[in-house]
Design a protein around this nucleic acid. Structure first.
Lengths: 170, 170
DNA sequence: TCCAAGTGGTTGAGCGTTTTACTGTCTCGC
DNA sequence: GCGAGACAGTAAAACGCTCAACCACTTGGA
């Protein structure tokens, strides 16, 4: 235990007073952080695996289809879609290419801006989403909401929105 | 909006009474879920990028080094290490190979079980962890704990542990 | 003692993501 | 108009993860 770098009792300062002393996490904070991180990692993994196994659609693809389905005319500019999916443009470009191969999305040049591309959800894509949605929702429900009290759900939202306000400011 | 598959008002049942009707998320639940998911995705991405940029160590590698540093004699069986890192054996095996190339970890055959391998943290690896730890902790502190009230931190831990109990049962 | 089944770990191929660079288009000041 | 710079999106290569197959060793029973 004396070799534990993240030990809260550690106060060594190798840097010559240049940087501020590290504000280590105490034991309680470490527990909170670990619980938060691990629970999310397990949840993410579980939802993605169940969705992929039962529908053949990964959570990443699902998110793209959802965003398109919610957009006007079921279409969005590539960059707008990337932003809504918290995805890089490159990643989204690759992903849309793969969805195009499945016939679920098609690209279309943007009329207003010759540089732009529109990603359009096809009927087949919408049908695939319709088939996958119940599986996804049931996963979120059973692994998350069914486990939490209404107060915990409210707290979850509150925490999420607080962190989001901090991180999403640009 | 009428095309929104995840709309809470949707009650279509295409399946002939075989499966139970989908328990869709209502608007409040959707907000909570989205806030929770997006905030975690942004936080994860932010922490990983900052850590990688400033120390050259990804969050995945960092986790491996932490687990080894906290273990007795700074060494663990590969499978035990994989479990603690919430990683697959294959993934860990690849990762350890890369850490070995950096000279931060070395493999050693296990004395008690000839099939087993021990991953051992080297002094160089420990030094790398010591250098990275303040950066990581400061990231978690500034992007998470500094944003939350003590009550929110307590709730975060509570939620995390609740979900963990559900998902970690094996 | 020997063999079958189980376990621990690695390997390689395929796939998805990241990074960097690049192409084509738009915008704005001259 | 026209050229410089910004912007939208894509391409290529390197990297990491997943999946399935595999090897080596151990265990337990005949």
């Amino acid at each position: 235990m004396s070799s534990d770098v993240s030990s809260p009792t550690r106060t060594t300062a190798l840097d010559p007073a240049a940087a501020a002393p590290t504000r280590w996490l105490d034991a309680e904070e470490q527990r909170a952080w670990r619980a938060y991180m691990y629970s999310w990692m397990l949840l993410e993994d579980r939802l993605d695996r169940e969705l992929t196994r039962e529908t053949g659609i990964s959570h990443a693809y699902y998110e793209i289809l959802v965003q398109l389905s919610e957009a006007a005319d079921r279409q969005l500019r590539m960059s707008e879609l990337a932003e809504r999916c918290l995805s890089s443009r490159s990643r989204l470009s690759h992903a849309v290419s793969r969805l195009e191969e499945r016939g679920w999305v098609r690209r279309q040049v943007c009329a207003e801006d010759g540089r732009g591309q529109l990603a359009v959800l096809t009927d087949e894509g919408f049908a695939a989403l319709e088939a996958a949605a119940p599986v996804h929702v049931e996963g979120v429900r059973s692994h998350l909401f069914d486990q939490l009290s209404p107060a915990q759900v409210a707290a979850m939202r509150d925490i999420g929105e607080t962190v989001l306000r901090h991180l999403a400011e640009r």
